[in-house]
Write a protein that binds this DNA or RNA. Structure first.
Length: 424
RNA sequence: GGAGAGAUGGGUGAGUGGCUUAAACCAGCAGUUUGCUAAACUGCCGUAUGGGUAACUGUACCGGGGGUUCGAAUCCCCCUCUCUCCGCCA
């Protein structure tokens, strides 16, 4: 959510920046400014009347105390019309405030100045490419065949237990999954992140705090009886730790890492390109979150990108890093780097991480602020997050890229965790 | 799930309709004085929002939402959460 002050003070700048996201903000911005000025006008009037009302009430109290009943009754008489006027104004104010809020949340975040123009994925800027793309034999199998061959992940069994997109990991498959989670968490802790293990269901306030609610309600599983939502990413509970909080500038940046299962309904996004592990309703992910000082948030972003890159290098996967163009960026992001790994048997890049700086867009919604040492004024923090990493596509790439005649080779960094060197 | 008791600022905690501009203490910040792992004293010490270049000032907020009243932290209704006891339970 952009701040109303910014829209008020730099209207043209906001409209100009949002064009980069192919978003025409002009009409909404005009409406916001109109609502904002009538809101302020009404509030100003109402506050004046309330002030008068408070004065009279206090007088009545004093008159009653001195036994001046008649004068008190007279004063009471004056309040009735005032009260009526105040009520009329406040009744007008409420819908204006609600509409103002619902208009502001329609505006996406402004892209950072380094963001390139573009419409979609084809316009993303390749920042870096690394690793070695393996040469597989002609009879190489895709991961959905490999998991059957070695009996390590069972989709049909998951369908029996729950439904499509809820796989069951078995034997070395389960161990590989657990190993990756531990590896990612350990690496994050080494890099200075504090591990947290949050609830995987959240309430409505948290859903609103990170922007899943009210708009993306259909993307989350809802536990109706208690009105909780299964989290689509650890970003939701972890970032909401800092909802309604005022931090000290000395404490920044705060760095958290969390493993959680993630639940996504993925309504309407199924198709041939999402076979196997490419898209699931439940999957495992380790997420990193930083709460940063506005002056340093892009330093934090670079640091997070370097961290994610180091994980992929340790897993010996061929990868590329993309800086998303305006048209491919999410609604909430100011700057996003996507990480993709090469899936040799599918012969395509798979997105395994998305690292973003949201600047103050999330923190404005969350009301996460900080104070500079010795200063009274509160300012919004910058929030950032990224996957480090999402497991299913990493598993898919390891299985496909590392297949040999003797079985699937485990990257050496993982062997201390798996306890085996090959899946056969 | 049943019964009872609660929810007040960063913390402890007073406040049962107007004397509250939310006391007092602790913590924190600034200063003065003494002089040295510190104490005493004085002042400051919430958030949001409106007006104002600013100093300053209006309004709202005592778990959340409604209501009664000229006036609500205080009375009434609904909700949430916490504690105690009982029940159930990994």
């Amino acid at each position: 959510m952009l701040t109303i002050n910014l829209i008020r003070e730099k209207k043209d700048f906001v409209i100009e920046r949002l064009k980069l996201k192919n978003f025409n903000a002009e009409i909404i911005v005009e409406k916001i400014l109109e609502l904002d000025s009538s809101r302020r006008e009404i509030q100003s009037k109402a506050n004046q009347l309330e002030s008068e009302m408070n004065k009279i009430s206090k007088e009545i109290g004093n008159l009653m105390k001195n036994g001046m009943k008649e004068e008190a009754e007279n004063a009471k008489g004056k309040t009735y019309s005032l009260k009526e006027e105040i009520k009329t104004l406040l009744d007008k104010l409420e819908p204006i405030e609600n509409e103002l809020k619902s208009e502001i949340v329609k505006l996406p975040n402004m892209p950072h100045e380094s963001v390139a123009p573009g419409i979609g994925a084809d316009d993303n800027v390749k920042v870096k490419e690394g690793g070695i793309i393996p040469e597989l034999k002609d009879n190489a199998l895709a991961h959905w065949d490999l998991i059957k061959k070695y009996n390590i992940i069972d989709f049909d069994l998951g369908t029996k237990l729950t439904g499509a997109g809820f796989p069951v990991y078995i034997g070395k498959g389960a161990r590989l999954e657990r190993s990756l989670i531990s590896f990612f968490l350990d690496e994050g802790v080494k890099a200075g992140y504090t591990e947290v293990m949050p609830p995987i269901m959240v309430n409505e306030d948290s859903g609103f705090g990170t922007g899943q609610l009210p708009d993306k309600e259909g993307q989350m599983y809802h536990v109706g009886l208690d009105n909780y939502y299964l989290i689509p990413t650890a970003e939701v509970p972890v970032t909401n730790i800092y909802r309604d909080v005022i931090l000290n500038s000395d404490d920044l940046p705060l760095k958290n890492i969390a493993y959680t299962p993630c639940f996504r309904r993925e309504a309407g996004s199924w198709g041939a390109h999402v076979r196997g592990l490419n898209r699931l309703h439940q999957f495992d992910k380790v997420e990193i979150v930083q709460i940063a000082h506005p002056d340093n948030s892009y330093k934090s972003l670079e640091e997070m990108v370097a961290h994610v890159e180091s994980l992929i290098i340790k897993l010996e996967l061929p990868y590329r890093i993309l800086r998303l163009c305006g048209g491919d960026m999410s609604f909430t992001s100011s700057l996003t780097y996507d990480f993709e790994v090469w899936s040799a048997a599918q012969k395509r890049w798979l997105e395994v991480s998305s690292v973003s700086n949201f600047e103050s867009f999330q923190s404005n919604r969350l009301k996460c602020r900080f104070k500079e040492k010795g200063e009274k004024q509160t300012k919004l923090v910058h929030s950032l997050n990224g996957s480090a990493l999402a497991l299913p596509r990493i598993v898919a790439a390891i299985l496909e890229n590392n297949q040999t005649e003797n079985g699937i080779r485990i990257p050496s960094a993982l062997i201390p965790y798996t306890g085996f060197e090959i899946i056969n």
